[in-house]
């Protein structure tokens, strides 16, 4: 029983250790680290271009813009 348990513990250790080495190899082979600029941009979708605020409800962006304009007008008035 004890030997089974050692095999289990060391087996798990080797499995997870090997998986991270495999992950690194997979990423290098797949070109994941070849274009860092592209990697940084990938978090933003095509409708979220750089230098634009994104912390707005996607579905309500137009409505939000109108609401801001309304509040600005109210303030002026």
């Amino acid at each position: 029983m004890i030997s089974v348990y050692y095999v289990l513990v060391f087996g798990i250790m080797l499995l997870f250790g090997a998986s991270i080495v495999w992950g690194l190899w997979w990423a290098l082979r797949g070109g994941q680290f070849s274009d860092f600029q592209k990697g940084a941009q990938s978090v933003l979708d095509d409708d979220e271009p750089t230098l634009r605020p994104c912390d707005v409800f996607p579905d309500l962006r137009e409505e939000y813009r109108k609401e801001l304009a309304r509040r600005a007008n109210e303030r002026k008035a």
Binding site: A40, Q41, V43, L44, E48, T50, P53, D55
Partner: peptide, 20 residues
């Protein structure tokens, strides 16, 4: 943090190399 920071301010992270 790496996801939300760019999303909120609309700017990609400063150095992707450093993040990796």
């Amino acid at each position: 943090i790496y996801y939300l920071l760019p999303k909120v301010i609309g700017r990609p992270i400063y150095s992707y190399y450093l993040s990796i």
